[in-house]
Design a protein around this nucleic acid. Sequence first.
DNA 1: GCCAACGTTGGC
DNA 2: GCCAACGTTGGC
Length: 159
Amino acid sequence: MSKRYWLMKTEPDVFSIDDLERNKTTLWEGVRNYQARNYMMKDMQVGDEVLFYHSNAKPPGLAGFATVSKLAVADPLQFDKKSKYYDKKATKEKPIWHCVEVQFKKKFERYISLEEIKAQKNLASMLVIKKGMRLSIQPVEEKDYKEILSIGLRPHAEK
DNA sequence: GCCAACGTTGGC
DNA sequence: GCCAACGTTGGC
């Protein structure tokens, strides 16, 4: 299967691009939405590339990029009674929630705010700018991914 | 903190 | 299987 591109949202107060840079990899735990889960379970392949989105941030936007480093496994938090992501319907034999492992690639030279994405005509098809789009994991078109990277990796001086 | 836009739950 | 009530997301 050819490589796919994704956007994954996280609240930087909880887990930011700097946390990912420090940890190198992370299990993308805590997704409790079936559509987002299905993307991780069924569609994500090792090597797929991921835009790292800071939601509930000031301002919200894209902070860097990463890659899928492991296929989906059962999300351990669904078995953890103390976790807010605990799910009493899940069992080890029949886990409900799955998550991939994501590996840090690079923090953008230039943070790309949501406002800036909205202003770019050639990024108009990106799902993240659509009104009411709450899905925390979204597919991204290759052309949009490449465009975002070229903006994000451009040195400040070239502005 | 507000609230629109969704997703989920549960009564019927 | 409908749909009202409720919960959550996330920009503003």
